[in-house]
Amino acid sequence: MSTSDDQERIAFEAAVYRRLRDHLRERGDVQNIDLMNLAGFCRNCLSNWYRDAAEASGRPMTKDEAREIVYGMPYAEWQAKNQRDASPDALAAFSANKPHS
């Protein structure tokens, strides 16, 4: 693969990430626990992966900084605006399927 092909692939991947991030920002009604139960990842996972990538490149980043990049606002603000109490069924499903990292 040539350098230009690799740069194009990276640009496409970045565009896809931004589109996913923006979509999740617009869908505050979709709860993180529901994302975890259905897809095995959530907004917090994305922020952790973002932070991991930054730190792997030598750019220190706090958990709060990474979350604000993904959420588009401070995490506490997003929680107050969007987060609902999880249903007993959602909590049970999460407990049964939570990742072991």
Rank of each mutant, 00 (worst) to 15 (best):
G72W: 02
V30W: 15
E65A: 11
L20G: 00
A66S: 15
D85G: 09
R84P: 00
A56T: 07
I10C: 11
Y75V: 11
W49C: 14
L38V: 08
G72H: 03
F12V: 13
R84Q: 15
R27N: 14
Y17F: 15
D5Y: 08
N97D: 11
S2V: 06
S47N: 10
F12D: 06
D85Y: 07
Q79R: 12
R67K: 14
Q79C: 14
S95R: 12
M73T: 09
N44W: 00
A53T: 05
A66V: 04
A14H: 08
E77Q: 10
K98M: 14
A93W: 01
F41L: 14
K81T: 13
A86F: 04
L38D: 13
R9T: 07
G58T: 08
Q83W: 01
Y71P: 01
A96N: 07
F94R: 05
W49Q: 08
H23D: 08
L20W: 00
A56V: 01
P99I: 10
R21E: 09
E65F: 06
T3L: 15
L38N: 12
V70M: 13
I10T: 12
V70W: 00
G28T: 07
A11K: 09
P60E: 05
A53W: 06
M73K: 12
D52F: 12
S95K: 13
E13T: 07
N82H: 15
K81S: 08
L38I: 04
I10H: 11
P88S: 09
D89V: 09
D29T: 05
Q83L: 11
L20F: 02
N82C: 14
R43E: 02
P60C: 06
D34Q: 13
L24P: 02
D52S: 15
S101P: 05
L20V: 15
F12I: 11
P99M: 09
D5E: 14
S87W: 05
